[in-house]
Amino acid sequence: MTATTDAELTYTSDEMMSIAAARALSNGQRCFVGIGLPSTAANVARRTHAPDLVLVYESGTLGSKPDRLPASIGDGILAETADAVISVPEVFNYWLQPGRIDVGFLGAAQLDKFGNINTTVIGDDYANPKVRLPGAGGAPEIAASCHEVYVVVRQSRRSFVDRVDFVTSVGHGSGKGDRERLGLRGAGPTLVITDLGILRPDPDTSELMLSQLHPGVEVEQVREATGWDLKVSPELSRTDAPTEAELSTLRALKEASK
């Protein structure tokens, strides 16, 4: 976590990541929120530019409006502030599966160049994994059925790999056209937001390429933190530094959760 100074504001690369992820969400969107980084970003968005963002949590809450970051996916505050509280089968069958959710907001332990996500095992042998991760949770069907998917994850050679060891949730499979072949109805990962920049799928191949750099980050640095030969978009742009309002909102939410 490097601290960056930009016009008197000091912020960390993690804060930049959360704020960049928050900015990606539009007001009024219905967003299926994973815990951790996605939940932080979604709650910053709701308290800044997207007050009518609808937060859906897999524990069974539609339209949660927490005033602090939930400690878990089923934190009581999510139910107490929700428009509706529903059962878990209903979340998946009535709300997610038919395509009622605009954005699925996911994290990842491992991500590959086609945006496939691994949260199951590290290592080639499923029966004897090097590291046993928590597993799928709601992610496979979130990645399949939301209109699009945003992934928020810290970038490193360990997490950004050429091919994931295990496909827990499908991104763009092995390339363009795979989602259609598999019968997956949403568009899949359209944005990957990291602590260094933002990646988007190449429209021709669906391979993730670097399309945006956060302030103070150079292309070489991002390529160094990527386990495949990362392509750079011809329209590479720079992320605006966090505003004072964005930073104070993020910090207040974190402070309130302590």
């Binding site: 069958n93 599966q97 496979p140 059925s145 496909v167």
Partner: peptide, 12 residues
């Protein structure tokens, strides 16, 4: 359900 398609879960 609409699920698991393309994932490695059905293999295991």
């Amino acid at each position: 359900l609409r699920g698991y398609s393309g994932t490695d879960l059905p293999r295991h």
